[in-house]
Simulated assay, not measured.
Amino acid sequence: MILRISQPIARTLTFRVPKTHRRFFGSSSNQNRVFANIRTPDELHNLTLVSAADNRPLITLWSASWCTTCQAVKPIVKGLIEDERIGEQEGGLGYAEVELDSTLIGDLGVKYMITSMPTLLAFSRQEAQLETKLVRPEQMKDREFLRQWLMTEARRGGRAGGGGGSLFGGLFGGR
């Protein structure tokens, strides 16, 4: 890989980047990425930015520590993404859990119309895919259904779609 840096007045610099360092210079990897739990609106914003820059959808699991159904769903979702690497062939996924019982989370649940826990919500290019969010625990516990949902979101490849164009896109079908 050759990296060229040009400046309007200065001369062009050319140097070789060793293979071991190419990942730092934008070589894309289809590997799924599991991020730390989200506890503030800024953390969610930052992760949606990172995922958009990687052209990789971000899958978020909205849950609370006291929610027993959430605790049952978490290992299934995380296992499919982290261990079985579902979505990597389609370009990769990002994954993070949003802690709704964090005292710093504010009205983030209201902003994204989270009406029940657990909820799985994908973001593509920083847009919440409200039309495709999962709210039924029985679907989240069905490994085959969940596998298909994750692959569909991964195929989106960080591209907008699914009614995420506006806050009310999921309710009124607008983009």
Rank of each mutant, 00 (worst) to 15 (best):
G158Q: 07
L150R: 12
Y112P: 05
L104G: 10
S102L: 03
L167F: 07
G169Y: 05
D83K: 15
L61C: 12
A154R: 07
A96Y: 02
M117I: 11
P137Y: 11
P137C: 09
R156C: 07
L146C: 06
A96R: 02
G165I: 06
R143V: 10
G164V: 09
V110G: 13
G161P: 00
A72W: 04
G109R: 03
S116M: 04
S166M: 08
K141D: 03
L120H: 06
Q139E: 11
D83R: 14
V135K: 05
T69E: 06
G162P: 01
V110S: 14
L134N: 02
V98Y: 08
S116I: 00
Y112C: 10
S63M: 13
D54I: 02
A154M: 08
R156Y: 00
P118T: 10
T115Y: 15
S166D: 15
K141N: 09
R143W: 11
L134Q: 14
Q89I: 09
W149F: 13
L47Q: 03
V110T: 13
F145I: 04
C67Q: 06
V73N: 00
L100M: 15
E138A: 10
L49K: 11
W149K: 07
R85E: 11
S124G: 11
A96K: 01
L80E: 07
W62E: 04
F168K: 11
G91F: 00
L58Y: 01
G94I: 04
L130W: 04
F172H: 06
L61Y: 08
L108V: 07
G91Y: 02
I76D: 01
G106C: 09
L61T: 07
E153I: 13
T119M: 04
I114C: 03
F168W: 15
T152S: 14
L58A: 03
G165N: 02
E131A: 15
Y112E: 07
M151L: 06
L104C: 13
A64V: 04
